[in-house]
Computed example of a mutant assay.
Amino acid sequence: MTCKSAHDRDLIRSYMQGDEKSFENLLNKHKARIYTSIYMFVKDKDLANDLFQETFIKIIDTFRSGRYNEEGKFLQWALRISYNLCVDHFRKNKRRPTVAASDDFDILDILKVNEDNQETRIMKRQTYDKVRQLVDCLPKEQREVIILRHYAELSFKEIAQLTKVSINTALGRMRYALINIRRMIEERQISLQ
């Protein structure tokens, strides 16, 4: 067990014993990764906020009812809840997420980037934008594995468990996603420099 999961477990225990500040600390510790993974699926800031809140309502309900299974993997469990809420949303609405030009959320706001000069920042932003557009063009299963691996930073084992497929299937989806991205870069003659 890692120090990080032990710390989460301590925060959860403190919260379940009545310390509201412990839950706030747990939320602050993981909110960026959970919100980012939700947003990358739904591509809508308001919907992402709603699903993020719904995720933590479910987490609180599970804690308060004593149904939390303490395995030392709070983040993976919370991401699974958020993932399932996203899937449920799209099943109910049967629509594919789209990116609106007016979205004011940007993954780069959460990522920590070393201070660069203005030109380097512009080039990085343009590269990230191009990569995001390519990821959005991937089939759903491939897009999922890219988001979960690179934005939510899950291992392939965690991705396999979350999406209910084998590790080999998750690895295969990543491989095909990278092949498809390379193909699109070549076909569209996109420069990522």
Rank of each mutant, 00 (worst) to 15 (best):
M1P: 09
T2C: 00
K4W: 03
K4H: 04
S5Y: 07
A6F: 13
H7E: 14
D8F: 06
D8K: 09
R9I: 08
L11N: 05
I12T: 06
M16A: 02
M16T: 13
G18A: 03
G18R: 02
G18K: 02
E20P: 13
E24P: 04
N25W: 08
L26F: 09
L26D: 07
K29F: 09
K31R: 15
A32Y: 13
A32E: 10
I34P: 00
I34Y: 05
T36D: 05
Y39T: 00
M40K: 07
F41C: 12
V42R: 08
V42Y: 02
V42F: 10
V42K: 00
K43A: 11
K43Y: 02
L47N: 09
N49G: 04
N49A: 10
L51M: 02
F52H: 06
E54W: 01
I57R: 13
I57C: 03
I59L: 10
D61V: 14
R64K: 13
S65A: 11
G66M: 10
G66N: 14
R67A: 08
Y68D: 02
N69K: 15
N69A: 03
F74L: 00
F74T: 05
L75W: 06
L75M: 06
L75N: 01
L79W: 01
L79I: 11
I81Q: 06
I81F: 01
N84R: 15
N84D: 05
N84M: 11
L85S: 04
V87S: 02
D88C: 06
R91H: 06
K92E: 00
N93D: 06
R95C: 03
R95P: 00
R96N: 11
T98K: 08
A100L: 14
A100R: 14
S102R: 12
D103A: 15
D104T: 09
D104E: 13
D104K: 03
I110K: 01
L111F: 12
L111R: 14
L111Q: 09
N114M: 09
E115C: 07
D116T: 13
Q118H: 05
M123D: 01
R125H: 10
Y128D: 00
V131Q: 03
Q133D: 12
Q133T: 07
L134I: 05
D136S: 08
C137N: 15
K140N: 10
E141T: 15
E141H: 11
E144W: 10
I147K: 01
I147Y: 07
Y151K: 03
A152L: 00
E153P: 00
E158T: 11
A160N: 03
Q161W: 09
L162R: 05
K164H: 02
K164E: 08
V165S: 11
S166L: 07
I167Q: 04
I167K: 08
N168Q: 13
R173T: 07
R173A: 07
M174H: 08
R175V: 14
R175M: 15
R175G: 07
Y176N: 13
N180T: 05
N180R: 08
I181K: 00
R183C: 12
M184R: 12
E186K: 12
R188L: 10
Q189I: 03
Q189Y: 01
I190P: 06
S191V: 07
S191M: 01
S191P: 03
L192P: 05
